[in-house]
Write a protein that binds this DNA or RNA. Structure first.
Lengths: 244, 244
DNA sequence: CCATACTGTTCCGTGTCACGGAACAAAGTT
DNA sequence: AACTTTGTTCCGTGACACGGAACAGTATGG
C-alpha cells in the first residue's frame, strides 16, 4: 500500500481536491507525505503527460484531466439527457439548479446551472457533500432503500451549518415526509440563507439521481417551486425509462 | 519514451479518448500497444485508484477522473463566469450554445447547453475539433494574432464535412471578414445541416474564449442571432475584464 | 461432446528504473 | 553578508515492474 509509482501519482493529484488551488513543490511534498525529490520527479512526469500544468513554481491540474474527466460515461450520459430538463427548470424558476447522484454516503454533483446572481453555495460540479445536509442528498437518501437509510442514520450526522440536522430522529421523520410527498425540502442546512427543494429521478425501478432548485431564503416560496421541480424530475425519469 | 509505469497508465487511459466507450482487456491491450499481462496489472491498479471502473469484463473511465477533471482551475473559472451569459444566449435563441477555448491548433469545448432537440454535432464538452471547421474555432483563430493564422494556413486544412473550407485563400478571406465584423459564420463546415454563428471573448487584451450558437440550417437567420451572440460575448468580456 | 480459438488470469526469474538521502544551487528573509 | 527555505541534480541500491509462458475460464461450431 502506498507503494507503486501510480499510487504516489494519485496521492499527488488528490492533493488538489477539493481546493484545486495551485501548489508549490514543497507544499505538495508535505501534503502528499512524499520526499521532495520524489515529488519533483513525479510532478515532472505528470506535467509531461498533461495531467499537471506548471507556471513558474506553481503546479495546477492539467487540461488532459479535464478532457478525460468529461468522458466518464455514466456521468456523461446522464448529464446529457438531463440538461434539457435542467434548462426547463431554470427557465421556470430562474434560480440555481442542481443535478446530483449518490456515491456511497455522499452526493456528487453532475451539473449546476445558474444565472447572474452569485448565491454562495458549497456545491460544485464534480464535488461531493454529505447526503444529509442537502436537498439533492436527502431526496437520494429517502429513495435509496431502508438499508442505506439506517446505515446513514446509525452514524454521526455531519453538518455544514448550524441548521444542518444532526439528530437522527428528526432526520428520520424528515425522510419519511419526503418519501410520502416525493419532494425534499431543505432550509439553510447546506448554506446559510439558502433554501432548497429537490425531487428524485427514477429509472428502471431505482433512484438514479435527484435534481433541485436552490434559492435565497427571502425568495423561497415552495408553492411556486414544487411543481416545477416535480415536473422536471418526472420528465427526466420518463426519458430515462425510454432509453435505459 | 513509453518507459515508466505512468506513461503506460496514461496510454491506457487515453485509449478511452475520444470514444469513451467500454473496452475489454484484450481491446485495451491492442489499442495501447502493451502486452496483456501488463495491461491487466495496470488496469487493476487504476481500478483500485478509481480512475477506471470495471463491470464484468468491461473497463470504463472512473469517477475519480470526473472529480479531478472538474477541478482544473482555468477551465473551472471561465466556465463558471461564462455560464450566466450562456444561459442568456440560450434563452434568447433557444438553440444549442457553445463555449470554447483555443488549445494549440484546436478548439476545446468547455460548455455546451441545449434544449430537448437533439441536433447531432461533433462537439462535446472536453472534446476538441480543428480550429478551421467550427464557428468557435474560426472566431478564436481570427483574433489570436497573425502568427497563428499563418501557421494554420500553411498546413493542410482538415475537414469534417464536404463543406469544410480546405482552400487557404478562401479561409484567409473568411477570417478577414470575421476580423472586421467581429462575428464568425459557419455553414455546414462542422456538421451537415448545421449552421453556426460565433463571437470572440476578450480579457486583458487577448482572446480567451469564444461562444457560439448552432442551429439547424433551415432555421438559420443571422439577423436574429447575431445581436444575441455579440451581446453575450461582450457581456462576458466585460465581466472578465473586471475580475481578471 | 470434444475440438478450436479465443479470452482473462496467475506465475516467476530477470533486469530495470524508481527511490530518496545527501549534496548543491537559487531565491527569499532578517 | 549570514541564514533559511525552496528547487534541482546526483547516484548507488534494491525493490518491484516487466512480460513470456503456462494455465484457466468462456464463447463458437462442427
Amino acid at each position: 500500500m502506498g507503494g507503486s509509482m501510480l499510487d504516489k501519482a494519485a496521492v499527488i493529484l488528490e492533493c488538489f481536491s477539493p481546493s484545486g488551488g495551485p501548489y508549490r513543490l514543497s507544499e505538495l511534498s508535505e501534503r502528499a507525505g512524499l520526499p521532495k525529490p520524489t515529488v519533483h520527479r513525479l510532478a515532472g512526469d505528470l506535467v509531461r503527460l498533461g495531467w499537471l500544468e506548471r507556471s513558474g513554481p506553481q503546479y495546477r491540474l492539467g487540461a488532459k484531466l479535464f478532457e478525460l474527466g468529461s468522458l466518464v460515461p455514466h456521468r456523461l450520459d446522464l448529464r446529457e439527457t438531463a440538461l434539457p430538463f435542467l434548462q426547463d427548470l431554470f427557465e421556470a424558476t430562474r434560480e440555481t439548479v442542481h443535478l446530483g447522484v449518490r456515491e456511497g454516503m455522499e452526493v456528487v454533483y453532475l451539473e449546476r446551472i445558474h444565472g447572474h446572481e452569485a448565491l454562495r453555495l458549497p456545491s460544485r460540479i464534480g464535488g461531493s457533500l454529505p447526503l444529509t445536509c442537502t436537498g439533492v442528498g436527502k431526496a437520494l437518501l429517502a429513495f435509496s432503500g431502508p438499508e442505506l437509510m439506517e446505515e446513514v442514520l446509525s452514524r454521526p450526522l455531519p453538518s455544514l451549518t448550524p441548521y444542518s440536522i444532526t439528530d437522527p430522529t428528526r432526520l428520520r421523520m424528515a425522510l419519511e415526509k419526503i418519501q410520502v410527498s416525493g419532494l425534499a425540502y431543505e432550509e439553510q442546512e447546506a448554506a446559510l440563507d439558502v433554501s432548497c427543494i429537490a425531487a428524485p429521478v427514477f429509472a428502471g425501478g431505482t433512484t438514479v439521481a435527484a435534481l433541485s432548485v436552490a434559492v435565497p431564503r427571502s425568495r423561497f416560496s415552495p408553492a411556486q417551486l414544487a411543481p416545477a421541480v416535480r415536473t422536471a424530475a418526472l420528465g427526466l425519469s420518463r426519458v430515462l425509462r425510454g432509453s435505459g
